[in-house]
Amino acid sequence: MNKRSGFKMATKPVLPLNRVCTIMKSSSDVDNVGKDSTCLMAKATELFIKKLVVDGYKKMKLEKSTSKFLHYQSLADIVQMDEKYEFLRDMMPKKITVREYKKIMSRKRGDESGINTEDSSDNSGSDSEDSTSSTSRSSRSANSVITLDSD
């Protein structure tokens, strides 16, 4: 496989340069983008996707999953674990079930109205669940930012 990717290096990037250039220019603080930087970026993005997929696959193997599919969950796990994928954390939160979501929402509502009667009883579990709720909240805010930007 290594040999094949080495062979791939010699050809042009798989991702369309035009599109990569458009995305780069959509950033507000960029005026001009050099030709070779677009090309490098396209290739870097390709390597990045490969890296993320391979990491996700390794994680799947570690869990001894026999599934023939690489699922979102493995990718989300890797993103939450690895420091260098920190910028994706808002965008790829862990999936939670509706029941968990309702639990979080009801707790939040309870916090907002100042009812802290339940806090003393399940203080131990609140930490981890709070962090999940914060990720889902920040993901929503991030989504709204993205739509605003592209408008």
Partner: peptide
Amino acid sequence: ALSRAASVFVLYITS
């Protein structure tokens, strides 16, 4: 998700 992640990656590196 990977497709979106790739777009975000481009912007992240660009900034």
